[in-house]
Design a protein around this nucleic acid. Sequence first.
DNA 1: GTGACATAAAAGTCGTACTTTTCATTCCTG
DNA 2: CAGGAATGAAAAGTACGACTTTTATGTCAC
Lengths: 233, 233
Amino acid sequence: MTTPAQGLHSHVLATLGLAITAGEYPPGTVLRTDELARRFDVSRTVIREVVRVLESMHLVESRRRVGVTVLPTASWNVYDPQVIRWRLAGADRPRQLRSLTVLRSAVEPVAAGLAALNATPEQCRRLTEEALGMVATSRGRQLEAYLVHDIAFHRVVLDASGNEMFARLGDVVAEVLAGRTHHHVMFEDPDPAAVTLHVQVAEAVRERDAARAEALTREIAVGALKELDVLAP
Amino acid sequence: MTTPAQGLHSHVLATLGLAITAGEYPPGTVLRTDELARRFDVSRTVIREVVRVLESMHLVESRRRVGVTVLPTASWNVYDPQVIRWRLAGADRPRQLRSLTVLRSAVEPVAAGLAALNATPEQCRRLTEEALGMVATSRGRQLEAYLVHDIAFHRVVLDASGNEMFARLGDVVAEVLAGRTHHHVMFEDPDPAAVTLHVQVAEAVRERDAARAEALTREIAVGALKELDVLAP
DNA sequence: GTGACATAAAAGTCGTACTTTTCATTCCTG
DNA sequence: CAGGAATGAAAAGTACGACTTTTATGTCAC
């Protein structure tokens, strides 16, 4: 059922974190440390450390004489990669994918524009390489190979933007892309238009054409949003 | 020196977190739990809990037989509000403000566009109210009052977007705006053009004109970026 | 030099005892 | 009867000491 885990702490943290983000324990639910200790058959020490971490993610709040209270979704640290992973693994995965895709659609075009200004030659090379990789794997049911290049491509763009906040969204984008491939389509080959757009973005960055890189990436984003019916029809 | 704090844990966490994000302890530095326990004059229990939290923020990594290793900036959870606050309080505050402003410039226009589609009448009302508040306080050295309205305005936009990820950036935006006011200018009244733009954004949202709301917000963003010389001259 | 092995250092885990805060009840007073 | 002060107890917070587990490193034999 629950992951084996190579440490008690990780195991309990994963189990509890997953349960809370999945919506078992509605907000306001109170947990007590020694009850949890009994339930997981570990010492209170381990539970306390887990609770502290959960508290730093604002999933719970611990108060004396009360216990550990589960907090409402609104206060969760939704940018915490760990929280994102838990939520993507849980029930509201679709909702989560939507939110994240909208975030992507805002960030990536700007990142691409900055990348056109800041990318190193090496990054330009990798961008082209990955784009060509996407072309090569875009036909004939090579979804997994395609995904690898797609993820790498977007990661390079985010890194090349030179903005630390953007760069850290690489993992999020990877999750979203993987989620999309592994659910949604998986059967049909990727949209040829999208593939072309990626190649053109690589070109634009290489030519230092920021406006074009941004506009093209915005088109890619629109495509991704359409896939999820986020836009009005 | 260090904040009083209402608990040993908070105190140690704040001190260590601040120190690490400030760049004392270069990446690779190894700390040992019982040494820390002696240094802070607390039990190893407290230190362990702090380390676990720091670890969940990817500021450090704890390995057996090695100790607690400080990780490079690239792996930090830079979206953790706690980490953001520490970094804004520390040495690379300017760099941090730049990164965050670029993030804002990507997110807020899209959020405004969505807000035009999704804002409730109540949110429209509040938006107009805050915009007018900005107008009213935009002259005569009422920087603090102006700041309050400015923050509220942007918070409503992000909330009204209906996207959870955007909504959670409210605190970040608040920090950035506060940081700008309290350093940078503080002496001159805000740019009248910016004030007008805010009023127009409120209008556009009220009239459900998503494209206009987005474009106007983009103008506000460009202004903010110019202030920080992020753009090429 | 290379590989197996032993050593020890540090984190991980546990159990217990004690402190502190704070909610809730009771009881006293006006 | 209302309101507030004293009281009790529940739960988290802290401390300490003993033990386990992992693992980097130094050593020894080959």
